[in-house]
Design a protein around this nucleic acid. Structure first.
Length: 417
DNA sequence: TCTGGGGTCCTAGGACCC
DNA sequence: TCTGGGGTCCTAGGACCC
């Protein structure tokens, strides 16, 4: 039984959420200050806009817009390829600044983190707001980056706060003021509430986050699943989603997918695409010393219907050959000639670390040989750059690639995310 | 937003077992 | 071969995130 002191009506937590403003572009400007104040986008290598400056946004450009369209319609916009090495470097430095003030920092994505300031305020004799302000100043001075910060009693509310004023915002939500903020926040803007749940809630006359937070708990339990009950608690100021400061060291799944246009029913092409995905997913798995016990292949039709094929592997593996023949044997189960497909993909699941790469269907000895071969290939690619060696079955898809090398280069850096 | 790529977590319901 | 009731395990797919 817990023996909390009688007067420990807990002081609300002070959770900080920091979010980079147009982060990739922000880093580009920090690297090259001449870009400041100009419309800039990144994503040239992908063919779609990944990040855009506020000046570019003002022109009506949006994330995901095709690069060719920008070239055609906005000749004054500066288009840059992503420089993920720099983004990672700045990201690390940004989080290190937060760590000067908090022990528990959760790196949520490349440009976002959470931190618990609750205990720190006493220690530093500063309020959470003052600490947040200092962090902002140091990020700006030392890295020349602009960030938005929110401080609130829970993670979900801290996200509301950091979004409240963007860019360069600093917003504190006190426990007593929660309602003021939630009344002006549409339910769909809440972290964890997507389009489906949002639409459902609308049918129940829940329009704002305030409407939702004021439902009673029973109603939430009866109408929604567990994750939404947790969001409900958090919106009411009850700290429920803990900060997880552990650095990410592994993966529970690895996937590779690619869309193409126009949609096609060319079986050889689809197979070669998937074959390439298998190789890349296995490459990444080997890099992290992981093996998969399950694999899912999928193709997505023109109308966004998924056809999936999930297979249990006899032994876990991270070498492509056996997966490749499995695919060829069973592809007919998902492929229909009369359909057109727009995307293919592979997901390695049930990953276990440090397992022996037992090469399954071929038996151990052959598998060992494959493993040795792959070690050499990986080493070779390390030296020469990726994509110097590949399976014959991948060949067709590679020869069709136009912007291969850039994309591969970036992919390599993304391995470290 | 007529929809890119890489992830995570949750759960309904089927398979299987007394 | 009529077919109860209750439990666990597991998977496929849904929903969401950046």
């Amino acid at each position: 039984m817990s023996k909390l002191p009688h007067n420990s009506i807990k002081k609300p937590k002070a959770i900080l959420h920091m979010d980079g403003d147009a982060f990739f572009v922000g880093v580009e400007v920090a690297k090259n200050p001449k870009l400041r104040g100009l419309p800039v986008v990144t994503g040239e290598e992908r063919g779609i806009v990944s990040a855009l400056s506020y000046e570019a946004k003002a022109l009506g450009i949006t994330r995901g817009m095709p690069i060719f369209q920008i070239k055609r319609n906005f000749s004054n916009v500066i288009i840059l390829p992503g420089d993920y090495k720099s983004y990672i470097r700045y990201s690390t430095k940004m989080f290190d600044i937060v760590r000067r003030y908090a022990d528990d920092v959760e790196e949520y994505s490349i440009d976002e983190c959470f931190a618990d300031l609750t205990g720190v305020t006493l220690h530093l004799k500063m309020t959470a707001f003052q600490i947040a302000k200092r962090i902002k100043e140091e990020v700006s001075k030392e890295l020349d980056l602009s960030v938005s910060i929110g401080v609130a009693p829970t993670k979900v509310l801290a996200k509301v706060a950091s979004k409240w004023q963007k860019p360069n915002g600093l917003t504190l939500i006190k426990k007593d003021d929660i309602g003021i903020f939630l009344k002006e926040t549409a339910i769909g803007k809440i972290w964890g509430i997507g389009p489906k749940i949002s639409a459902f809630l609308h049918t129940k006359c829940v329009e704002t986050a305030y409407d939702f937070a004021n439902k009673d708990r029973e109603w939430v339990r009866e109408n929604l699943s567990r994750p939404y009950e947790i969001i409900f608690e958090e919106l009411n100021g009850v700290y429920t989603i803990p900060i997880d400061p552990k650095p990410k060291t592994s993966y529970s799944s690895i996937q590779k997918t690619r869309s193409f246009s126009p949609a096609t029913n060319n079986k050889a092409f689809l197979l070669s695409e998937i074959s390439k995905h298998i190789e890349e997913a296995c490459f990444k798995a080997r890099y992290f010393n992981l093996t998969a016990k399950k694999i899912t292949f999928f193709i997505k039709t023109k109308n966004f219907r998924y056809k999936t094929l999930s297979l249990d592997l006899l032994h876990s593996t991270n070498t492509p050959e056996a997966l490749q023949s499995l695919l060829e044997e069973r592809f007919y189960e998902i492929y229909e000639k009369k359909e057109l497909y727009r995307t293919t993909g592979v997901v390695l699941r049930d990953l276990r670390s440090n397992g022996f790469a037992q090469g399954n269907l071929f038996g151990v000895t052959k598998a060992d040989r494959f493993e040795a071969v792959h070690k050499k290939i990986d080493a070779l690619e390390e030296k020469l750059g990726k994509r110097v060696v590949h399976l014959a079955s991948t060949h067709e898809s590679l020869t069709r690639e136009k912007i291969g090398s850039d994309a591969e280069e970036i992919d390599r850096h993304l391995l470290f995310l």
